[in-house]
Simulated assay, not measured.
Amino acid sequence: MGAVTYKDGIAILQLIVFPFILVASLFIWKRTGWRVGAKIWRYPFTLSLIRLAGSIATLISINDNSENVQIAIFVCELIGIAPLLLAYVGMLRLIDLEKQIPPRPLALVTLMAMIGLILGIVGVSTSHTTTPGKLTKAAMGLFLAVYVITMAIAAWLFYSLSLALLSYQKKLFLGIALSAPFLLVRLIYSALGDYTSYRHFSIKSLLNSDHTSVTVYLCMSVLEEIICMVIAMVFGVSAILASDFVKPTPEVEMEMNRKERPNGV
């Protein structure tokens, strides 16, 4: 049996933390409503499953450090970025009860993240290597664009609603604002790994358990993600428990959509 390394310790940390995030996301999802809440809270739920799968793959690599296991770790690392970003798009949907944001921008942002997810999976699956290829780099470019657009929409929506914000909306905005710098660092870590030759951001050095690379990974990726999700879950729970929280039922959505149509058509 192989020895448990520093990198394996990080996987154990994720196995401890992400079940709590998974349960919290399920709690908020249920309170929001399974049908409507799926557009919002399925993303942190999915991210938790991906991180748990990646951690299990890392622990499997203790005794089976094959190329397939390494690629599985790499895929889980990459595809987790999409649900991480879309969790904040979902929070904007929950804030924007009166549909201030036109539907197309949010749909476009979601589509970009999904395309990035597909490109990343195909890029890793077809290259049979942990070296980022063109498709992986394209996926990272889309993720960076999703971050910029999401934060721009959040700033615009806050400005539009600032004079009439409900308590639950303020809490969700605060969750997004506090998470933004940590999310940016998380993306910078992946971007440096994809677009530069810096050894300490290389997935290859990480898989080889280079001590400095693993520390950089812990500080710029794992902890940043955990902090982002903890902030999102804390403010998410606080928002849905607020006395003025408006549950986005299908009926409420239909009424808001009716108001959007000209002349009540």
Rank of each mutant, 00 (worst) to 15 (best):
H211F: 14
G120F: 03
L108I: 14
M254K: 15
S61K: 09
A3W: 07
S202D: 14
P248C: 07
Y217I: 02
V252E: 15
A242W: 00
A177N: 05
L59N: 11
R261V: 15
S55T: 04
Y168R: 03
L15P: 13
Y195E: 01
T5N: 08
A154W: 04
Q169N: 03
T58I: 15
I56F: 11
A107V: 08
I203V: 11
S179R: 06
V252R: 10
S205M: 13
M220V: 01
G123F: 04
G133A: 01
P132E: 04
A72R: 01
T129S: 15
I95W: 08
T46Q: 14
V265H: 11
A139C: 07
L15M: 13
C228R: 00
G141C: 04
L174R: 13
L22H: 09
R93A: 04
K99Q: 13
C219Y: 09
Y43N: 12
P181A: 10
L142A: 03
W29D: 05
I176T: 02
L144V: 04
I81M: 11
D64M: 12
V148I: 15
A152N: 14
P262V: 08
K99D: 03
L174D: 04
A53N: 10
S167R: 09
F158L: 14
N208P: 03
G80V: 02
T131H: 13
A242C: 09
H211V: 08
P44N: 06
S25I: 04
S238T: 11
R31D: 10
K171L: 15
K170P: 01
I71V: 09
Y43H: 12
P250V: 00
C228M: 05
C219Q: 11
P102T: 00
T196S: 13
V122R: 02
V234P: 05
V246E: 15
H200A: 05
P181H: 12
R186W: 10
G80I: 05
P262H: 08
E67V: 11
P44Y: 02
K170A: 02
M114S: 14
Y195M: 13
I231A: 06
H200D: 00
A152W: 07
E224F: 11
I153S: 08
R31C: 01
